[in-house]
Design a protein around this nucleic acid. Structure first.
Length: 593
DNA sequence: TACATACAC
DNA sequence: CATGGTGTATGTA
């Protein structure tokens, strides 16, 4: 999905002069517009389904619970940025409108594009979207019938994954923090998520769905998109399609002991998904006719937020341009072409015509499931915790994450060239820092020092989340730089190589114990045999330890070792030369290239 | 390549 | 007591 409007939140301009004014005590008054500015924006984060809910009062509870929090402050900060970008967007609009040449050009190009797209339009396929109802909650209720009829949510006090329909009546929703949900619904019951349960059930569902389309595309645990053209043998009569939808729902329920799903059928995957939402729960919707006119009358009145790929930010930007519905989107096509990137405007044009994305069927082929790992591009692990400023504690967290990530990579049989560190500061600001490693790896032996180095460069800070991601998989065709060669060349060059400037700067702030390349090699090749009676710094996690300590107090690594001893260490296979050649290897590369 | 943002689920 | 984790795509520099 393109980033449609390059930011921008029209309705979220309340951040400017708001401050922490205390208008919230008066129960009879709505929250001030300032208050709602940033917060209503948070709340629009749902695609709908709040039918019988008193949004106003829900919103007030959310506002009250959030007031003064760091999270809210961050939301306000983001809202300010959105407002600025919206301003720029409107500026571009007025510039474009006054440029008659540009307008004429836009007309020509868009008209041509529409003609081309209409030629591409295919109405002969039958797509079916299957969406499990309140999926996690439904799985739990199945095992705990006593939950039936009660308001409950899968998740915890921190975050709710799924609220059942009873809880939703109180305004409780997924992605809502549990403590706010509890305020909305004091008798709310929390159920701990059990993903293995949901995964197992999802497999059963997919087993059923494969009988309708062996090449189904899965989207998460609770959704799938099917091409049922072959199954219906090309027939598109209303009654045939209704019957197929019913059979799918029936078969899924039968195979899962009663889990319900909602089904949509349409000439494109995108429309089928939207249709599946229409008669939720346990319902179905067929976009009748499979004609261009029927498609258009189905989508025209839709609010733009219903479109997959248009989220709350984009939606707000579109609103700023006066665009609320898909019909508006079509009417604004020249403008959008004129002021947006080609990717974005073409996505919106296709959408407004009800023409799906080109089907890249070959891409993920028939086996998205765990059996045959599809073409994933990255693998990551991240953890949230109470804000931490202590660098040793942070290092330990990061090391844990690296081990977990290493294990995942190993299980997947993947090794990557790129390591990305993600940090969420205690004020919710997010940073990412990445390095390209000299060779693809899945080993914590490689990941840990590189990750610690990235972290160290950011200190001091206080974080509430750390994460690591590995990407850029090794390519069989790549000429693999033999690590032995790197090592040999490194040893030849010897000590003339120095630390990089950036690293040195950091060292002034935080005394680093990250092994230099030379130190790492030395550690591997000739572990120190003499025990010096001085305090020492752990190579693995940077903690300074007592002279008498044999192992690091923080991470347990042996003195002189960059490898913290963890049970998971047994999983690690050493297959390469020491990793800390990173900076060195890249410098070698630069020199030769 | 590096980083930030938006989005889906 | 107090706002998630995994993965993808896009834009910009």
């Amino acid at each position: 999905m393109p980033e449609v409007v390059n930011g921008g939140a029209a309705g979220a301009a309340g951040a400017s002069g708001a401050g922490a004014s205390g208008a919230s005590s008066d129960v009879n008054n709505n929250a001030s517009s300032e208050q709602l500015g940033a917060l209503s924006y948070v709340f629009l984060n749902s695609k709908g389904g709040m039918d019988g809910v008193d949004m106003q009062s829900v919103q007030q509870v959310v506002a009250a619970m959030s007031a003064g929090s760091r999270h809210e402050a961050n939301e306000r900060r983001k809202a300010t940025e959105h407002a600025e970008r919206t301003r720029q967007l409107l500026q571009r609009k007025s510039t474009w409108e006054r440029d008659k040449v540009a307008v004429a050009k836009s007309r020509r190009e868009v008209d041509a594009a529409v003609t081309r797209l209409e030629e591409q339009r295919r109405l002969s396929s039958v797509f079916c979207h299957v969406d499990q109802d309140q999926y996690y909650a439904a799985c739990e209720e199945q095992e705990r019938p006593e939950l039936s009829g009660k308001a409950f949510a899968v998740g915890g006090i921190g975050m709710i994954s799924t609220a059942n329909y009873v809880a939703r009546k109180y305004g409780v929703r997924s992605a809502m923090p549990g403590f706010i949900a509890l305020k909305l619904c004091p008798h709310l019951i929390f159920v701990r998520p059990d993903f293995s349960k949901y995964t197992a059930k999802a497999q059963e569902v997919r087993g059923v769905l494969r009988t309708f389309d062996a090449n189904l595309q899965v989207r998460g645990l609770d959704e799938a998109s099917l091409d049922v053209t072959a199954y219906v043998k090309g027939r598109r009569d209303r009654d045939v399609l209704e019957a197929v939808a019913e059979k799918i729902r029936h078969d899924v329920a039968a195979a899962t002991g009663g889990l319900t799903c909602s089904v949509g059928i349409a000439p494109t995957r995108e429309l089928a998904k939207i249709a599946s939402d229409r008669n939720k729960p346990n319902g179905q919707c067929i976009v009748e006719d499979f004609t261009r006119e029927a498609v258009l009358s189905f989508i025209r009145p839709l609010e733009t937020r219903k479109i997959t790929g248009i989220g709350k930010v984009t939606d707000a930007s579109l609103k700023a341009l006066g665009i609320t519905t898909v019909e508006d989107l079509y009417n604004a096509r020249y403008l959008l072409h004129g002021i947006l990137t080609p990717t974005a405007s073409s996505f919106l044009l296709r959408t407004s015509l009800g023409i799906g994305a080109e089907d890249v069927s070959a891409d993920r082929g028939g086996a998205e499931d765990d059996q045959q790992e599809h073409n994933r591009k990255s693998c990551s692990v991240e953890r949230t915790f109470e804000p931490i400023g202590d660098r040793h504690t942070l290092s330990r967290k990061l090391i844990d994450i690296a081990f977990t990530l290493s294990r995942h990579l190993h299980d997947l049989g993947l090794r990557g060239h790129q390591l990305t560190l993600k940090i969420k500061l205690s004020n919710f600001e997010i940073r990412s820092r990445q390095v390209t490693l000299p060779h693809a790896t899945d080993s914590s032996d490689d990941l840990i020092p590189a990750a610690l180095k990235l972290l160290k460069a950011e200190l001091p800070l206080s974080a509430r989340l750390l994460g690591l991601k590995v990407s850029q998989w090794e390519n069989e065709n790549d000429t693999q730089v033999a690590s032995r060669d790197i090592l040999a060349r490194f040893l030849q060059k010897g000590d003339e190589e120095d630390e990089e400037g950036g690293l040195r700067k950091v060292e002034e702030i935080v005394p680093s114990t990250t092994p230099t390349p030379a130190a790492a090699v030395a550690a591997k090749m000739a572990p120190p045999t003499t025990v010096r009676s001085e305090p020492w710094a752990c190579i693995a996690c940077t903690l300074e330890n007592e002279a008498s300590a044999k192992r690091c107090e923080a991470c347990g690594a042996l003195k002189g070792s960059s490898l913290p001893p963890t049970s998971t260490l047994a999983l690690e296979k050493k297959r390469r030369a020491p990793t800390l050649l990173d900076g060195f290897a890249s410098r070698l590369k630069k020199r030769s290239g």
